[in-house]
Simulated assay, not measured.
Amino acid sequence: MEDLWRSATGQDPRPEDYSGIEFWSNPERSGWLTKQGDYIKTWRRRWFVLKQGKLLWFKDPSSASSRSAVPRGVVNVAHCLTVKGAEDVLHRPSAFELSTPHNTMFFLADSDKEKEDWINSIGRAIVQHSRSLADNEVVDYDNSRNSARDGDGDGNKNDATR
């Protein structure tokens, strides 16, 4: 029934969502979390893997142990806005949420320590994988500052936007 629902709603991840990610080998973090369904709000225990800026989930660890494995879901953490505790929202211990521009996903960890470890790992991944955009902006900013210093000496930028 769940597979039928996933097909009908387009929830199955596309291969391009996780191609090139060796999730079966040396993940940044992996472990059990309970995830609330996106459409049918039931709770399912899933095996999660965080690697190379992707949070992937599988039915169990054996489902994630080979190259031919297909995740049940994938989130690109570069598109995530926040990851934070959600005990006050769900009224459940060790709860946290992961928000994207389009939705918010809820998870339950097995302990408060596990919850904090997942929040920290996902938070680091969000910063690391969104940094590439910020780094480009810094490089552009630095280049424009250098051109101002190398320009006519009046501190104004020498570019076409003046």
Score class of each variant (00 low, 15 high):
S147N: 12
R162N: 14
A109F: 01
T161P: 02
S25I: 10
R44T: 14
A160N: 13
S65R: 12
P61F: 04
Y141F: 13
A125E: 02
L4I: 15
D150S: 12
D17W: 02
D117G: 04
N103V: 11
T9C: 08
F58K: 00
S62G: 09
D60I: 08
S68K: 13
R44S: 15
S62A: 14
A69I: 10
T100A: 04
V83D: 01
T100N: 04
R72S: 13
E97W: 01
H79E: 11
D3Y: 09
V49F: 01
T9F: 14
L98G: 08
E87P: 06
S121A: 15
V70E: 06
Q11N: 11
S147Q: 12
G31N: 04
A160S: 14
R6Y: 09
A64R: 03
D117L: 05
K115Q: 10
G37N: 08
N143V: 10
L56G: 03
D135Q: 13
E16D: 15
R67N: 11
G153P: 09
E137S: 13
W5Y: 09
F58D: 06
D17G: 08
G155C: 10
L56D: 01
H129V: 09
D17P: 09
N76G: 07
S147A: 15
S68I: 07
S63G: 12
N146W: 12
A109K: 00
W57L: 03
N156D: 14
W32L: 08
R14P: 03
V75K: 01
Q128K: 13
S30M: 06
A109I: 00
G73T: 09
G73E: 02
N158I: 12
W47G: 03
R72P: 04
F48M: 02
S130L: 08
W47A: 03
G73N: 05
P27K: 06
F23P: 04
D110W: 01
W5P: 03
P101G: 11
A86V: 02
N156G: 13
S68M: 07
F96C: 00
L90Q: 05
R46H: 08
Q128L: 10
D3I: 12
N76V: 11
G20Q: 11
D60M: 06
T42P: 00
D150V: 08
P13Q: 09
S147W: 04
T100S: 15
A78I: 09
T82E: 07
A64F: 01
E2C: 09
R72M: 11
S66M: 10
D140T: 14
A64Y: 00
L50F: 01
G153W: 05
W43G: 05
A69W: 04
R67H: 10
F107K: 02
D60S: 15
K115H: 00
E114D: 14
R44M: 09
T161M: 12
R131N: 14
R29Q: 06
V127P: 01
E16K: 05
D38I: 07
C80G: 07
Y18D: 08
L4C: 12
G20H: 11
R149A: 12
F107D: 01
V89H: 04
T100W: 02
E22I: 10
N156L: 15
W32R: 00
V139L: 11
C80Y: 05
F106D: 02
P71S: 09
V70L: 05
S144Y: 06
